[in-house]
Each structure stands twice: as C-alpha cells, then as structure tokens.
Design a protein around this nucleic acid. Structure first.
Length: 427
RNA sequence: GGAGAGGUGUCCGAGUGGCCGAAGGAGCACGCCUGGAAAGUGUGUGUACGUCACAAGCGUACCGAGGGUUCGAAUCCCUCCCUCUCCGCCA
C-alpha cells in the first residue's frame, strides 16, 4: 500500500507518477471520499468525547448517590446519533481502504518510461550466446530424447502445465536447489529458512497478492468454518511475512533470508503463452532471496541482491542480460525491478529467469514490518526486497539448451558436478 | 480427536464493569556515581489516526480478531483465530 498521506497531501503529484504505469487514478473520487472521511471522523470523535465525558459523570454521580436517570437519557440521544454517523464513516473508510489497496506502488524515479515489455531497458549483458555448428534443440526435444522429461505423463496425473522428470535429470534438478542455497548462504550471507507452503489470506495481503490477484492463486478447499488457505505462489510470501507485525532493532539489519520452496500458480490469463515445455508451469521450484533493510539502504540493496542472482548464472556459465523494467511493466507491488533474462538457444531468445525488486515500504506498510530508528527511537517501516536466485525449472532448461552438444548430450557445469556425484554429462 | 489453561505495551507480568493507556519489573534513552566499566541511583520511554506547522497541546481508537450487553468494557456474553499442558492417534 502506498502512503495514505500521499493521497491526502500530494494527490496530483502521486497521480502523475502513477500515470507512468499507465494507471489513471480516480482523483475526484478519492478527494470526495477523503473530505467526507475527514468531516465524519471529526464529528464522530467529538460525539465520542461528549459521551465519554458524561459517562464519567454518571460514575461519579452514582458514587455520590445522586439520581442518574436524567443524565442517562441525554447520553442515549448522543449514542443514537453516533451510531448513525459511525455507520456512515465505516462505509466511507472501507471504500477508501479498498481503493488504496488497489493502487500499485509508485515507480522509482530511475525506472525508465514505457508502456510494456518491449520498452524495458537493457542495462548490461554477461557472456556470449554460443555459436553452435548444429541446430540447437529446445529442452523439450532434448528431454524427450533422453527419456527423462515427460509432459504427457504429467498431464495424465494432473493436467496441462505440469512435468515429470526422472533419473539423472531429476537429480540435476535437485542439485540446482542445493547449489543455489549453498552459494547464497556461504558466499552472500543469507540465512536459510524452511517455511510453510500453505498460507492464510493475511499473508497474501501483506505481500500484495491479495486482494487484487486471487485468480493467480490455488485456493484450498477446507472444512466448514475454516478460513481459506492458499498454496504459495512464491517463497516471497512466507519469507516476507516472517516480519509481519514485528519491530526489530537497527543492529539486526539488514536481514537476508533465503529459502527453497515449490511455487504454485494457476497462470490464469496466460492461455496460449509458453504452452510448450517447462517455462510456465503450475508447479515449479524456486530459490528465493528476501531482504529487509533500513529505508536509505534499499536502493543499494537492490543492486547487490541482483548481483547475487547474477552470480548463480555466471557460475553456471549461462549468458544473460539484465533488464530494468519500464514503468508500464512493473509488478503491482514493485517500485523498481531488474529482470535477469537467460539466453535460450532453443528459442533463440533471452527469457526471464529471475526478477529482483525493491518494494520500498509498500509491502512493509501492509505487513506493519518495522524497525526502531536509533535517531528518534520511533518504529518506522522497513524496506523489503526480493529476487529469485533462481527459478529452478528455468535454470534447468537453460543448462540443457546452452550446454547441449550435437548428440543431444547435456554437459553439466563444473560447479554442479560435486552435487551430482561427480557426473559430468547426461546422455 | 478428547480434557483443561491461556492470549495485555519492545519483552515479562498485574489488573473481573467507572479518570486504566493500563501497576510492577526488564529493556532502551539521558543524567548522577566511577580512572573506566559493572553494580547502584534519578528521570524519561506504546502505536495509529484527527485537529495542527508530520511542534506543543487537545481529542479519538487500540489489552488476539470480530460482534453483543451497558450511560460506561482489558474486565460480562457470543463467534472465530492462535498458543500451552495432559490423553489418544500418527509421518
């Protein structure tokens, strides 16, 4: 959630900044609701004050043995008026918060202009796409010829957008998880977590997936009376919510967390997109990094966090480029995002493999995740960041396609070999 | 699944209808003491919102969440969530 004060005091500038995303803010409605809220709230509080005063007098009068009936009737009148007004105030406030929750984060000033994907800005490249003297196969063909990657079999079990892997390929997939966790914990100073894969609505509200994006989630059917629960779409949700409603000390910052989890996405609205292969699945594994930092540190933290994700690609010798998402392509909660796009010879294209974002206080405000600023001893909102480090399935795809030879053999990057019992190739 | 106990401020912990935003302690901040530190000691120390100059002051709300009773609720009633103990079951 953006700072409500921006709506109250700097509505026009805020609307202008949000317009970069292609969003038109209903300023008139917001302003009307805001001024109505103001007058209703003032009046309600005045009446409450009056009621509290009189009620207090009743207590005293009663102790003195006086007749309290006349005072009581006076209060009753106030209470009736108060009830009507608070009802109205609640209505206004609900509409206002609903609108506020629906407003995306304000793009950072360093975010490039643009309406969508095509206008994202390339920041840098690493590695050269290999020039092969044979026709590169994509991972689907490679996996099928190895007999270790099967989508039809998965469809029998579960439906479309699932995969089975077997044998050495399944092992390599598992190895990637361990490798990435080891790099982030040993070399980048992250703390490893194991977290629930099922979360409640509050957690999803905290990170911004709810209320707006419920169609992307798998909701679980539960017994009567139980609150809805959801499969996590990313480890960002449980990891970031670890600090929900917490106040932490300055010396405990930054907090750098990493976890591997499966991720579940319904991929509603992506029909016909990436239907071939493992790029877009209902279930995939991901190693996720999350950082909680003091506000003035978050811009730098985004650079280092992105670097941590890049390290993995470099160690795996996978060519990639870093894209700064333009305002129109930013995710709902993000203020600035770098996408890492890995080269996929099978597609002859760079494809997203990691997304690293600074949310500033947008998530922290919903979460009430705070720190105690030593300067004034007051609790203030933290800044949160996260990034994939990396998406496991897509990394596997990238390894298969980039490290294939003319025989369809996959050559395993050296850094991974200790994780697969010294195996150097598959097939 | 059965039986019981409980959820109060940064933390611990008192408080069973009327100046209770809440005793006491710890922690923290500032000061005294000290060669320095510890100990000791004094003072201060919740959050959000409104009014307003994001000052002071004043006001409102908040004692797990949401309803209700009442002139008045941390305190009484209902529903839900969560934690703990014992028993049962179980990867």
């Amino acid at each position: 959630m953006i700072d409500p004060n921006l709506i109250r005091q700097h509505l026009d500038e805020t609307a202008a900044q949000l317009a970069r995303r292609g969003l038109t803010l209903d300023c008139a409605r917001l302003q009307a609701l805001e001024s109505e809220r103001k007058s209703l709230q003032t009046e309600c509080e005045r009446l409450q004050h009056e009621r509290n005063q009189i009620s207090r007098k009743i207590g005293i009068a009663k102790a003195d043995g006086e007749d309290i009936e006349p005072i009581k009737t006076k209060v009753t009148g106030i209470s009736e008026r108060l009830q009507k007004l608070t009802g109205k105030l609640d209505g206004v406030q609900n509409e206002l918060t609903e609108m506020l929750l629906g407003i995306p984060n304000i793009p950072d000033t360093t975010v490039p202009d643009g309406a969508g994907e095509d206008e994202n800005l390339e920041i840098r490249r690493w590695g050269e796409p290999q020039k092969l003297d044979f026709q590169a196969k994509d991972h689907v063909a490679l996996g099928a010829s190895l007999g270790m990657l099967d989508f039809e079999l998965a469809a029998k079990l579960s439906g479309s957008r699932f995969a089975t892997m077997s044998g050495p390929l399944a092992r390599l997939h598992r190895a990637l998880i361990h490798f990435m966790l080891d790099v982030h914990t040993r070399e980048h100073g992250y703390k490893e977590w194991y977290v629930p894969y099922i979360v409640n609505a509050d957690s999803l509200l905290g990170t911004g997936q709810l209320p707006k994006f419920s169609e992307e989630l798998f909701a679980l059917q539960r017994a009567d009376n139980e609150r809805p629960a959801y499969l996590i779409p990313t480890a960002e949700v449980p990891l970031t919510n670890l600090l929900r409603d917490e106040i932490i000390n300055a010396e405990e910052l930054p907090r750098c967390y990493v976890a591997h989890t499966p991720c579940f996405r319904s991929e509603a609205g992506s029909y016909g997109k990436d239907t071939r292969g493992m790029i877009r699945q209902h279930q995939f594994e991901k190693v996720e990094m999350v950082q909680f930092v003091a506000p003035e540190k978050s811009s730098d933290a985004l650079e280092t966090l992105t670097g941590h994700a890049e390290t993995i690609l470099q160690k795996l010798k996978l060519p990639y480029r870093v894209m700064s998402l333009c305002a129109g392509d930013l995710g709902f909660s993000a203020c600035k995002t770098y996408d890492l796009e890995v080269w996929l010879p099978g597609q002859q294209a760079y494809r997203e493999i990691s997304s690293c974002s600074n949310f500033k206080s947008f998530q922290a405000r919903r979460l009430q995740a705070r720190w105690r600023n030593p300067e004034n001893r007051k609790p203030e909102l933290l800044h949160t960041l996260n990034g994939s480090g990396l998406a496991i399935g897509r990394t596997l795809v990238a390894i298969m396609e980039n490290h294939q030879d003319r025989h369809g053999t996959i050559h395993i990057p050296e850094v991974l070999q200790p994780y697969v019992g010294g195996m150097s190739k598959i097939g």
